[in-house]
């Protein structure tokens, strides 16, 4: 990767203003003859400029949570507050990278057009758009494929396009839903580093959802561990790893192993039905 990985100064994380505030979030899917309580009670705060990972087993309600936060789904109870405003519809200043990233790209547009369209909708002038699009394309390493159509690219490259589109949009909060679940291990490692690089470079608040414990620990400043459905937060783990991370070095440190072990234990407990609130599922 050709990106400058110098860590940004720590002070840029604004520890006072919450970028995203989720309070008592509950989501029950109704219809089809039965109700599914996907998320029971989630409360957490993400400060401006943080990179927070949410890890939980499949079916824990991670996608449901992100869809509620992004305003795509009505909540049953509780509220989501982004930059001080309650979310009732997709708010400005938020970008989402979907789990089905390949399907989130417009197949009739080229890579460049895919990235540019949201900027057009934001009302940016042509020259400004062109510049931001190019910066994003270069940042994710797609310079040579800018005029290709998404279906001409591999899965990993499609994911880069989705990320570039989100980054070019300059959101204050970037939500990512298991973005690397479907790419090969090498690509995945590259993309993980890419996310941290972009986070440094563009100073965006990131909420990264994954079912992969290693990935959560490697990427995050904090890891929120989710229980099984109906979902609550089991633990909010502070990741004390140094800011500059590398796939090889970081993953082989004792600290990484300890954190990983800790999170893993929590998840195992969750699987056995342990709930912090003492409720029964």
């Amino acid at each position: 990767m050709s990106i400058d990985t110098t860590p940004a100064p720590r002070e840029r994380i604004d520890t006072t203003t919450p970028a995203l505030d989720v309070r008592g979030l509950k989501k029950v899917y109704t219809g089809h003859g039965r109700d599914v309580e996907a998320v029971r009670n989630l409360t957490f705060t993400i400060r401006s400029g943080e990179l927070v990972c949410i890890v939980g087993p499949s079916g824990a309600g991670k996608t449901t949570l992100l869809r509620c936060i992004s305003g795509l789904l009505d909540v049953t109870d509780g509220e989501v507050v982004l930059d001080g405003k309650k979310v009732t519809e997709p708010p400005p200043g938020m970008a989402v990278v979907f789990q089905e990233y390949g399907r989130s790209l417009f197949p009739w547009l080229t890579v460049r057009q895919n990235i540019e369209l949201p900027l057009k909708e934001k009302g940016l002038k042509k020259a400004e758009r062109a510049e931001k699009v190019q910066t994003a394309i270069d940042a994710v390493g797609l310079t040579d494929s800018a005029d290709a159509h998404p279906w001409q690219l591999s899965g990993g490259m499609q994911q880069r396009v989705a990320i570039a589109r989100a980054v070019a949009y300059e959101p204050s909060v970037l939500l990512m839903d298991e973005p690397f679940a479907a790419v090969d291990a090498q690509t995945r490692a590259d993309l993980e580093d890419l996310v941290r690089d972009l986070w440094h470079k563009f100073k965006v608040t990131v909420l990264f959802v994954t079912h992969d414990i290693d990935e959560a620990v490697y990427l995050g400043e904090r890891v929120l561990v989710l229980s099984h459905r109906p979902t609550v937060i089991l633990e909010d783990v502070k990741i004390t790893l140094p800011d500059e991370r590398s796939q090889l070095e970081t993953r082989s440190t004792k600290e990484f192993a300890d954190l990983r072990h800790h999170v893993y234990e929590q998840i195992q407990k969750a699987k056995q039905g342990f709930r912090p609130d003492g409720d029964t599922a």
Binding site: L72, P90, V96, F98, R103, S104, F106
Partner: peptide, 15 residues
Amino acid sequence: VLVDTSRTYRFRKPT
């Protein structure tokens, strides 16, 4: 997913 994408990027109705 395309529909959700257009919603999150707040595409205007004509777009």
